[in-house]
Design a protein around this nucleic acid. Sequence first.
DNA 1: AAGCTTTGTTCGATCTTCGGCGGAAGTTGG
DNA 2: CCAACTTCCGCCGAAGATCGAACAAAGCTT
Lengths: 385, 385
Amino acid sequence: MTPQPGSAGDVLTLISAGSATTRSDLARLTGLARSTISQRVDALIERGLVEETESGESTGGRPPRQLRLHTEDHAFAGVDLGATHCRVALMDISGDVLAECEDSMVIGEGPEKVLAHVDQRLDRLLGAAGRPRSALRAVGIGVPGPVEFATGRPNNPPIMPGWNDYPVPDYFDGVEVLVDNDVNVMALGEHRNSFAGTGHLLFVKVGTGIGCGIVAQGRLHRGAQGSAGDIGHIRVSGHEDAGCRCGNSACLEAVAGGAAIARRLTELGLAAETGGDVVALVQAGNTQALRLVREAGRLIGEVLASLVNFFNPEVIVIGGALSRVHEHLLAGIRETVYRRSLPLATHHLSITPSRTGINAAVLGAGILAIEHYLSPDNINRIVNA
Amino acid sequence: MTPQPGSAGDVLTLISAGSATTRSDLARLTGLARSTISQRVDALIERGLVEETESGESTGGRPPRQLRLHTEDHAFAGVDLGATHCRVALMDISGDVLAECEDSMVIGEGPEKVLAHVDQRLDRLLGAAGRPRSALRAVGIGVPGPVEFATGRPNNPPIMPGWNDYPVPDYFDGVEVLVDNDVNVMALGEHRNSFAGTGHLLFVKVGTGIGCGIVAQGRLHRGAQGSAGDIGHIRVSGHEDAGCRCGNSACLEAVAGGAAIARRLTELGLAAETGGDVVALVQAGNTQALRLVREAGRLIGEVLASLVNFFNPEVIVIGGALSRVHEHLLAGIRETVYRRSLPLATHHLSITPSRTGINAAVLGAGILAIEHYLSPDNINRIVNA
DNA sequence: AAGCTTTGTTCGATCTTCGGCGGAAGTTGG
DNA sequence: CCAACTTCCGCCGAAGATCGAACAAAGCTT
């Protein structure tokens, strides 16, 4: 059933969203009596979820006591697993980062090794932040492949050998674990951090491959099989010769991904293997690389033009390794999208580089965990327990 | 705020969805005491929203009194406005059609004339069904162009001269009016009638033009400007020569729409002007027409393949005038989608012709009106008034 | 300094909801 | 055919939640 209006969970949602910072705000927003609100807030304070800070500005009368999330007793973690890296951030309940770390790690070594690594980092970060393990409430993990979100099991991930159908949450105990595709958590991180007011947003990650996270009505759209946003294998015109690892040809990823650009540069006699090498060449002023990146932007723009017509987003955010040279990538993307999409859909559309940057994934993963914990249902359960 | 759990609105939602047909069902589903449920049901009966029918089957004890929506005192209407037709259906609150009509009408004559026409039909249908005008609670209207849903104003519709920004709901008084794009209401009608359990569905209308209605998580996705689903102007490869009325070239609609196929047939010396003519030729066994329809299916499939990767729907429904020859259209679509989309996304994907058929739009428009009226918030307002 | 404004708490009145009880209306079994 | 059993439903007192008025607190205004 739907949560009660003005239940403890609802009240906490308003506080955590910043919609209300005082008891009177809450009374006004919920329509409940001030006395009732006080009772709810007391319950939340007693459970250690909310705290009072010094009085705020008076508006001509007694100054209100400010309310905010109590950030001491709980901890959450966001984990960003890539093909060869592992980033972990420990966050408090308001989403602020308490401690973070980053290191190399090979995801192909399989779930046991990798998750042991993660677990160890979690302990280290908890130590650094001075919080006991028992304070850890939930962990969000972004992985580079498709996941059945409801169970946290990777679903035939191409670059994660040994992970297929592995029940990731079972590895940890005493903590709720949410696992999602890395692009989804990046989209979530970007949305909550920099585009909170936006209803419909696309986050496009241009790295070795190309993927897309979809936020519809403020929530992640994962699709029927959790594979939504897999735009790397959409066909682009005029590149029938480019074979893709998926078996088809002319896939976007096979012509505009970082790996594809590097290959083309290699053919031109320039040393480049990864998307990072491409970025380095562009930053060094290499015109060939620059031209190829811009051309990749046009191809990505061709696909995005279709998706703009179909999905009609408010904002498209470009992230991933290649967005470090976003001026050139964006030029190509914008050029094509504004030419090929319908005016009604592009009129208020903005296409921008990621503002959250490299941390979008860890932060998004952490936010996934925090929002799960702060969901009205869960809070009501905690308060009424 | 969120509606109360087990509020009158919630209870009615359960009854109307068929999830509960007796008081004990409701008590079980909501977790409320039987006495509380009885009180809610009494309030709903008193307001004329629910009625009791004869007792149902006993399960070993006293047989429960069945509950269902009271279908007598209210009426709703769905209106399907096309370029040259007008269909109106009068429905009771459970969605059953009480009376309907269809006639020719030219939408280009402008809102006043067309809406006067609609209003007259409404009166006639109300008369035929023996219900007073005052019983009419809400009207849903599907129009062939983009609409700002919140205000019911068409937004620069290309084939509706005189309608731009016209406040359609203001024309009617005493009745709530919801206006949406025709493809959206078709998608809604199809979903609620034939695919109620499906989370994510695409409804593709192939007629003169090509459009798409999007159901995500059971709800219509309209996008930021209400232009979502406008897939007719997505580019397809290898048809740069085909100019489109939108100013671009190689638009899907310009090569695979009914009008485009008719033009190609005309070039081949066959008399065809509209999508209907194309259908007639195919049904007459003309091989040229058949080949072109199948080829159109492949082109539509090319676009849908991209959208399947991006959106990951469970079901794609093909409707519109050309779906009357769906065997040929679907063959082309399926062929391309299953070849070009990712296995994970296509594994449980079904692509089927419309089951609801020609009535999807009127029914969907009516359902739009009914669901608006039955929304928990609205019902709570009515019951507590 | 006295009064005004806004905030927050206390407390009794009121409204909701709960759950037990008993009557109603069937089925089952002898 | 009747007694026992099961399930459904309304009634009603008890328990709980919410409200709003009154009051106290704390700063602003004049």
